[in-house]
Design a binder for these strands. Sequence first.
RNA 1: GGCAGAUUGCCCGAGCGGCCAAUGGGAGCGGACUGUAAAUCCGUCGGCUUUUGCCUUCGAAGGUUCGAAUCCUUCAUCUGCCA
Length: 423
Amino acid sequence: MSIDPTLLDDLEWRGLVAHSTDRDALRAALAEGSVRYYVGFDPTAPSLHMGNLLQIVTAMRLQRAGHTPFVLVGGSTGMIGDPRDSGERTLNTLETVAEWVERIRRQVEPFLSFEGQNAATMVNNLDWTAGVSAIDFLRDIGKHFPVNRMLARDVVRNRLEDGISYTEFSYILLQSMDYLHLHREHGVSLQLGGSDQWGNITGGVELVRRADGERVHAFVTPLVTRADGTKYGKTEGGALWLDPEMLSPYAFYQFWLNVEDEKVGELLRLFTFLDRARIEELEAAHAEKPFLRAGQKALAEEMTTLVHGADETARIQAASAALFGGGDMGELSPDTLGAALRETGVLRVESAGGLPSVVDLLVETGLAKSRGDARRTVGEGGAYLNNVRVEDPDRVPGADDLLGGTWLVLRKGKKSFKGVEVV
RNA sequence: GGCAGAUUGCCCGAGCGGCCAAUGGGAGCGGACUGUAAAUCCGUCGGCUUUUGCCUUCGAAGGUUCGAAUCCUUCAUCUGCCA
């Protein structure tokens, strides 16, 4: 496989390199041949999310440019947990970690190629840490870590006031040991990650230098934030999960479609595989007619296709067009409507014995979290049945409300839809 | 081990015997304006009812009192100071 010499320029243009070890050295290494690189994911949840996705697409770019990926799933590091500002983590049980390791491994696999000259390799750091004795660990790894330097790290310093356990304090040693191991066993010489990992990653770079006298490379992608600087990736109730069980593909698509104008160009560059010309074209179109949201549409389509596939994306686009078309719901064919609603989630109710009231339906579909909340929503004018505002919370839909004889379209606010299928 | 202080709703933080479901800010939710954007403004923001009603909440368990988030006891956790 030939090496793409423009890789680093492209990464930098996209804004994917927030920090790196010596750029000239990195550039030289990437030009020389297929670099073996690694990116790690800790099983801190049953699914990866938007932040991890940035590492995934970056890893994909490197592989497409001819370099050789090693994907590390943190079977051991996930048992420890890296320190974060919000405070000490609660340790997950070993069974939980093991299960999440497996789920994440399966989740990452489709994004990389495991065939060809630069085939990807999946590794689990539990394989080389489980058997290390405490004495060996302290002598071989710990000796290379000056505590004064460890204390100076931002995460640690921020935690000194509130307290940090020795467990989390030691996390950097484990992750650094991974780099050393992969370097020794597989010739890995580049690590990438998120910018919050920079400290842990440089720890590994230094360990390789101190232990083996070898120079290895690293770079990290930026932290993606909203236009106002706050954390991204939060949708209703949770993170932007990649697992369709945890976040429906429809909601995933809607997230990207609703990205702020100011962030569209940045996100297109960071996350999509669209080329520079195409992205600049979209940015120009967006600048001229922002209300058409050409950038958001492209972004949502690219990301949803990447994560959930082209077929699912097409269905979601059709559903979005139907639901947000603003027209009379009765104009839609029952098939189209049913297909659209199935993307948003459907509640099936029996018609025998009469239908539930609008308040009950709001609760049962999950649009409202309690009956009080549902009543409040109706009172605030935020409840709609078949795109018509509902005034009376106790209103009970009748037979003539059923679209195509079976469907009710329940909406809360501007963009939360649920279908009700009456059988 | 001793002394002192802390623990409040999703988060941060007031309250320090009744007027407390509990001030304020943030997040969330709804409305208006728009473009299924941002900003702004308004409303809302424990549960059940739908109302000048009831229930469950202020680290946990007991107690004092007509009445406690507010006082007392014990326990747990955290922080600081002294050993």
